[in-house]
Each structure stands twice: as structure tokens, then as C-alpha cells.
Design a protein around this nucleic acid. Structure first.
Lengths: 126, 126
DNA sequence: ATATTATAGACTGCATTTGTCTGTAATTAT
DNA sequence: ATAATTACAGACAAATGCAGTCTATAATAT
């Protein structure tokens, strides 16, 4: 059980946006070189971040990507959720009808982690 | 990102051991029927729990499986670790040399969850 | 010895992740 | 208008990991 590589990329991408704050839009090609992944694959990750409304894209010459919210507004959880989706870490496969005590404990544990990820913002890593 | 079904089974198996406390060894076939999975697959899960020293097995007639520690000693984390291994939830794929701030935040978040799972014992679910 | 139990490892099928390839759409500069 | 520049979308393929089966082997009690 582990977060995907795509999530790893997404977090680093977002951190990079923060570092480049104030400069022009970042466009796909240079960003791909910097991240050392192929432009088309990077594009798919960026599109997910766009759909989650964390960054915005503008096509055409002088276009590119830029942050949509401030670095204090965007939490780690926002970025992770944009890539991983919002599925629960554990869902009981048995006892589907009555409430499962095991599931309850697991959900409490997950909540502890999620709270931390919601509190941590992009600004905290730069 | 989600815990595997095997982990789900393992937690339920361990809870069942607690419920059956004081009775004879549980053997594979009946346990498989109760869990509604195939004996061979169940066997693989149980073997992992044996290797993690959470249960013990005795072959031969009247053999079977039984708890190795008390229900107050065995934590959720012990069981999960037995199946999932002890890998980190997030490891930075970049910045392998210098310390990665993103990784640090993720590890802190994971620690919050792990602490909860270490505090919760089998006895808490029955 | 024989029945009963667990153990080990090879193997298959399936789902997901990680990419690539190709083409399309939108915007801007000239 | 047209060309250059940019992002977007979807089909596709390879690799990985998970779920589960099959078959054979080892250990123990009676």
C-alpha cells in the first residue's frame, strides 16, 4: 500500500509552482525537462490538477500553467485527492450490513492522517 | 491507494481468534468455511501471521492455529504490518540525496495514523 | 502406517499504474 | 488569415502488484 508515483510528481510539481511564483506561466515542455518526465505524461497529471481547480491552464502562445489559489490555501490533501481520488483507505469487505468495529478503528486512524494532510499547506515546504 | 483485501481478512481472522478464545485450536478447513475463502488462500494469510509471531501453528491431528500473544498485546498495527510489510506510505521518488520536505510532511502524517493503529488492540473490537 | 494437519512454491488471471503515441482544439503573434 | 504555440483527449501497450488456485511436501497424533 503506497501512494502512487503520480502523486509524488504532483506534490513536487505544486511545490515547484510555489518556488516559481511571480514569474510567467510555466509551459509544458520546460516543466517536463525540469521534472525529468515526458511531456505527455506530465500533461495528464497537470490536467488532473486543473480539474481539481488547483492550477489553471491557458492554451496558445505565451500560455501555460499557473497556480489558481495561494500557497497558503492549497493543502497537501488537496493535491493528493486530485490524483488519488477520495477513496477510503480501508473499507470492510465483510459484515456489510451491520457496522464493523474494525472498519471504525481504521477510519479513525485514517482521519488522523488526513487531518494532518489538510493542515499542511504548500507554503510549509518552501 | 487502499489496504489490500488480505489485510481485511487478517484483521477479521485475528478478531475471530479473540472471539474463540479458550476453545481448541482452530484448523484451516473450518476457519476457511467461516471466512468464506478457499483454504489454500487462507493458508497463505495465516502463514504470514505465523511468521509475524502473532499466532502459532501446530501440524498433525488436533493441530491448527491459536493466538500467540494476548488480545491486549496485539495491536492493529501488528496485524497490518504482518500482511502489508513495513513499507512507508510515501517515499520521495525525487531528491534522493538531500532531504525532501514533502517526504517529511508525509511521514509525519503517516506517523499520526500509525500511532492510532498501535494504540488500538484486538481487545478493542470485541 | 495412516489420517490429519500445516507449508511452500509455481502458476494464472485480473486490475491498476505508468507510460507512449497520435491526433485535435484553443489561443496568440504576425 | 495563417502559422506557431500551447494544452487536451483518448487509444494503446508494458509493467507491476494483488487475488486466488493447484500441486506437492513436511510434520504430528493415534
Amino acid at each position: 500500500m503506497k501512494y502512487t508515483k503520480a502523486t509524488n510528481y504532483a506534490l513536487h510539481i505544486m511545490a515547484y509552482f510555489v518556488k516559481q511564483e511571480g514569474t510567467d506561466n510555466l509551459s509544458l515542455q520546460p516543466l517536463a525537462s525540469h521534472m525529468n518526465i515526458s511531456p505527455t505524461y506530465l500533461s495528464k497529471i497537470l490536467t488532473q490538477l486543473v480539474k481539481a481547480d488547483l492550477i489553471q491552464s491557458t492554451p496558445g502562445a505565451n500560455g501555460g500553467y499557473s497556480l489558481r489559489k495561494t500557497k497558503t490555501e492549497i493543502s497537501f490533501y488537496d493535491v493528493i485527492q486530485a490524483i488519488e481520488g477520495s477513496g477510503a483507505l480501508f473499507t470492510c469487505e465483510m459484515d456489510e450490513n451491520r457496522t464493523c468495529q474494525i472498519e471504525k478503528v481504521m477510519q479513525d486512524a485514517e482521519a488522523k492522517m488526513v487531518n494532518h494532510l489538510k493542515e499542511k499547506r504548500l507554503v510549509d515546504v518552501v
